[in-house]
Write a protein that binds this DNA or RNA. Structure first.
Length: 944
RNA sequence: GCAGGGGUAGCAAAGCUUGGUCAAAUGCGCAGGAUUGAGGUUCCUGUCUCUUAGGAGUUCGAGGGUUCAAAUCCCUUCCCCUGCACCA
């Protein structure tokens, strides 16, 4: 038995590959294959989700390399944005959870506890995080055996990279793709800064977003009151407004107009591009009973309601009791309220106004639903919330505006909502009021509010020419698996203006405005180009300051003369030439592989960036994708503690096994559910294959008599078919198919062959398949394959030529004969199983006569359909398989008797009792009549 | 709601583009047998239902259609997952 210490084998080949620089190609005359996978983000360890993407990628790349391509697969590291910063921040503030997490991460690499602590402590500096993990990730990658060129590493924080990204944004600006405008964001007033999800308490479990309320202006004296709603379309149904009598309100000058709103609202408005000056403060109770005039000219009363929250939006709400459960219940409560007995007649006089029709409800859905759910008063908050939500959903998606809604009559609520809001704002009858979707606080405990940035930078993916060109790219782009092409199409359609810079985080500053950091998805769209040049930039010590726009103009776009470019940048002409040559050699990117999650952003931006910056010949050629990995049926997350890190995995299982598992468990287009039990089960087959293959490799060195037999023909045919099918599958990126064929099918075939064959036959076949099979498997399990290959006295199977199919060995007949034998065996077993209580002594197998076969062939050929056949036994039999015999008449020509006789011992052994083979012509048995072509008659005899 | 993907035997997962060879690969699980002191491992066999001679019946979310023939093509319908932006 072949025993290997997998840790040792892995270490050995890892170090051999990388000391020999086996995967570091340079410009040559060979045909090239430039392949990339998005660089990982460096805030922690890699997990099986990364593993899946990188292993699939590696299989593709190894196949291409063995198929004679000059393959470049480089790697860099992504550090842009807030996450690294957030980690450092938390560690600096001694956040116990973060420290524990990072102790665990670092502990995976370090032996010494004291050292681990020291390292984690150093993470107060974000660059320490970046530097530490980028080094460790390289080690991890090398451990998985992915054949990456590590000589072109960089991080997105490197000054060379900054210059490269700045150049891109200069180009976007020149083309008019970069624009500035208003944008609402989450904001902390006390920190004077934008806040992201990672800054907000509990935002990872309970997301906070910015909502746009429409605050309509209703006249009250010489001022307006601002009442807010998320449903502007109901403005036609207003019957009154509500104020919280306990609340604090102000009168303020907002953009030159006197308005009433809550005190909190006035402050918020000042962050939303409004000039706000508070004139006086007053209590909500002072508004009760006042009559206001809505923008539609209707005079309605202001009534008290405790449910109005002055901390939310403008502090007043208008009331649409026909459609809003809260409003309806509030009015009912008010009628019963003794404190406000003076208002009774006003409330009593309010008539509900219906503005939306929706199936299943009459004129006043809110009233109906409140009555149906038996909501008694405002205290039943949970019930009212539910009623509101249900009704809103129903009306929003299914409702229509009624006749009384002027120009919006007949529209769906969905459309009317947007249009009414726009209209009110345009007519200056309302303003936008941005508010957080729930009360939220930063991790430091400051209030999070919605603010409007007036100078936010956007990339306008809707620029007509840009979008058109990008669709052109998409038309030509090969997407693997194809099913995702449509999604790309839809995403391209949908892409609009997208904010592309932030006020904080690591990364590159906007070239013309250094207060802005280019946001992390926007700085990672064109970087495959960077791999082609960074090696020479670093090797020749070109300074970041030399990487002026002219440098990139020249290299990527061929602009300026080389003399000019050299003069401006101070880069020598030959060097400039050589860098451009390298870019021109490798570009375009032939294939980019990543997870499907990136389609809606990263991959789409990647396409757009290329159409904006490069000529058509340099646009990407293909994108391949794989779905995500879940763990034991659940999404992986730190909080669930079910994240499987590659580190842990490889401590216990051979890398080659894990690689096999990751490519074989699911197709690229489906989720992979990582189950430890399955992996362990797979290990059995894995060990078996290693044992079998090692044996074959040893056999292949033995001498043998060169004599082919039906069995060797069968095995070689199976093998060569597998070579053929595997190769096709790999060419089409059907990686799972390839692994099934190369690994499982062949293993099963060999096991069967081995049970049927003599040692001589095994040696004969081994000599012909050993090398090929090792090569075939090497993309999946490179470590063991290198080990086996070296035992044949050769170097680096990873760099060998992919096996060529020996078509002449594919022998359909040999395979058919063996299938036939299996069918017969199956048949005999079936019959035996029906003989429940009898012990079988022996079996007689009677093969159909020649005459019957000829007859059968005639019948099949002379008739077009099974209906035309008559009802004799042979015809009845033929009816069942009519069409398959018709398309493959050679089936019927098989020499059944010879096959069975030659396999007689095998049949007896498999069945466990002796068998006799007879021909129908020479048999004395009555049952011989039952024999049909390909279906011999079987006669069992029993021990008494 | 919009967009994309999906529903296959106890479970997981192929097959669907190009209809027949599909009661449907493969793996797990389960059952019986061999091996073993026992367990595990390994090997063989079976695993939709009925059937004491190789037969029959019912299945691929549900319902309808096209066809000599449908898991595969068309229509309708129900259910599930993902994304919906400034976040890596």
């Amino acid at each position: 038995m072949f025993e290997l210490d997998f840790i040792e084998v892995q270490e050995k080949w890892r170090s051999k590959w990388f000391t020999a620089n086996a995967f570091e190609p340079s410009v040559s005359s060979e045909k090239k294959f430039f392949f990339t996978v998005p660089y990982p983000y460096v805030t922690g360890n890699l997990h099986v989700g990364h593993g899946r993407t990188y292993v699939n990628a590696d299989v593709i790349v190894r196949f291409k390399r063995m198929s004679g391509f000059n393959v470049l697969w480089p790697m860099g590291f992504h550090i842009t944005g807030t996450p690294v910063l957030a980690v450092s921040d938390k560690i600096a503030k001694n956040d116990p959870e973060t420290i524990a997490l990072y102790l665990e991460y670092v502990n995976a690499y370090e032996q010494d506890d004291a050292k681990t602590k020291e390292i984690v402590n150093s993470f107060k500096d974000p660059w320490a995080v970046v530097n530490y993990f980028s080094k460790k990730l390289v080690q991890d990658f090398q451990k998985i055996g992915v054949s990456i060129d590590y000589s072109r590493q960089f991080t997105t924080g490197d000054p060379e990279y900054n210059a490269f990204v700045q150049w891109q944004f200069l180009k976007y600006k020149e083309k008019g793709f970069l624009k500035q405008g208003d944008y609402p964001i989450l904001y902390s007033a006390s920190e004077k800064n934008a806040v992201g999800e990672d800054d907000i308490k509990d935002a990872d479990t309970d997301a906070v977003e910015v909502q746009e309320f429409i605050s309509i202006k209703s006249k009250l004296g010489d001022s307006f009151i601002l009442s807010s709603t998320l449903r502007p379309e109901t403005v036609f149904g207003i019957t009154n407004a509500f104020v919280n009598p306990e609340g604090d309100y102000v009168q303020a000058l907002v953009d030159g107009e006197k308005v009433f709103c809550s005190k909190a609202a006035a402050e918020k408005l000042s962050f939303q591009k409004h000039e706000v000056k508070v004139l006086k403060e007053l209590k909500g109770s002072e508004f009760v009973g006042k009559i206001i005039e809505t923008p539609l000219g209707k005079k309605v009363p202001l009534l008290p309601a405790s449910f109005v929250n002055v901390e939310n939006a403008s502090g007043f709400v208008h009331s649409v009791p026909a459609h809003a459960p809260y409003d309806y219940v509030a009015l009912q409560d008010l009628k019963k309220d003794k404190k406000h007995a003076d208002l009774f007649s006003i409330v009593e006089g309010i008539e509900l106004i219906s503005v939306i029709s929706v199936e299943g409800f009459g004129d006043f859905p809110a009233k109906e639903i409140v009555e149906k759910m038996k909501i008694a008063n405002l205290k039943e908050k949970a019930k009212i919330d539910k009623a509101t939500q249900d009704l809103y959903k129903l009306e929003f998606y299914q409702g229509r505006m009624k006749e009384n809604c002027s120009q919006f009559a007949g529209l769906s609520v969905e459309q009317a909502k947007k249009k009414t809001g726009e209209w009110l704002k345009q007519e200056k009858k309302a303003i936008s009021f941005y508010e957080t979707s729930r009360p939220a606080f930063t991790r430091h405990g400051d209030k999070v509010i919605a603010a409007v940035l007036s100078d936010q930078w956007f990339l306008d993916y809707n620029s007509p020419d840009w979008k058109k060109k990008s669709f052109e790219l998409l038309d030509e782009l090969k997407i693997i698996p194809e099913q995702y092409k449509k999604q790309f199409h839809d995403v391209f359609e949908w892409l609009d203006k997208r904010p592309c810079a932030r006020r904080r985080g690591l990364g590159t500053q906007l070239p013309f405005n250094n207060e802005w950091i280019i946001e992390s998805l926007s700085d990672s769209t064109f970087y495959p180009a960077f791999y082609t040049i960074i090696k020479q930039i670093k090797a020749n010590k070109i300074q970041p300051s030399q990487l002026k726009p002219e440098f990139f103009d020249f290299v990527f776009q061929g602009k300026h003369s080389i003399q000019e470019a050299s003069k401006t940048t101070g880069v020598p002409i030959e060097l400039l030439q050589s860098i451009k040559k390298e870019f021109d050699y490798w570009y375009p990117c032939d294939q980019r592989h990543t997870g499907t999650a990136h389609i809606t952003n990263h991959l789409s931006f990647y396409c757009f960036a290329h159409t904006a910056l490069l000529q058509k010949e340099k646009w990407p050629k293909s994108i391949s994708l794989n779905e995500l990995v879940i763990s034991e049926g659940q999404k992986m997350s730190k909080s669930k503690g079910n994240v499987v890190t590659l580190h842990k995995l490889f401590a216990q299982y051979p890398v080659d096994l894990a690689r096999l598992y990751l490519v074989n468990t699911a197709d690229l287009g489906s989720k992979l559910d990582f189950r430890l039990k399955d992996l362990q089960a797979l290990q059995k087959s894995f060990n078996k294959l290693i044992a079998v293959l090692s044996e074959i490799v040893i056999f292949s060195t033995h001498d043998s008599a060169e004599k082919e037999t039906p069995m060797t023909k069968w095995m070689l045919s199976k093998f060569e078919s597998a070579v053929k099918e595997s190769t096709t599958a790999l060419k089409e990126n059907r990686i799972r198919d390839y692994s099934q064929k190369t690994f499982f099918d062949l293993l099963n075939s060999w096991e069967y062959f081995s049970s049927r064959a003599t040692p001589e036959e095994e040696i004969l076949v081994s000599k012909k398949i050993a090398e090929k099979w090792v090569k075939l498997l090497s993309p999946i399990m490179p470590f063991y394959c290198e080990e086996l290959w070296s035992s044949l006295g050769k170097d680096f199977v990873s760099l060998q030529q992919w096996p060529v199919v020996s078509e002449e060995l594919i022998d359909e007949n040999a395979e058919l004969e063996e299938d036939y034998l299996q069918n017969v065996l199956q048949d005999v077993r079936r019959i035996s199983s029906l003989m429940k209580n009898k012990k079988i002594a022996s079996a007689k197998i009677i093969v159909a006569s020649k005459e019957k076969k000829t007859q059968a062939i005639n019948l099949i050929q002379k008739h077009a359909s099974p209906e035309e056949l008559s009802t004799d036994a042979l015809s009845e039999y033929l009816k069942k398989n009519f069409y398959s015999y018709r398309t493959k008449p050679e089936l019927l020509e098989l020499s059944e008797y010879d096959k069975l006789v030659s396999a007689k011992d095998f049949i007896s052994e498999s069945l466990g009792y002796p068998v006799v083979i007879e021909k129908e012509e020479s048999s004395n048995e009555e049952k011989k009549e039952k024999a049909m072509p390909l279906k011999p008659s079987v006669l069992l005899s029993f021990t008494s």
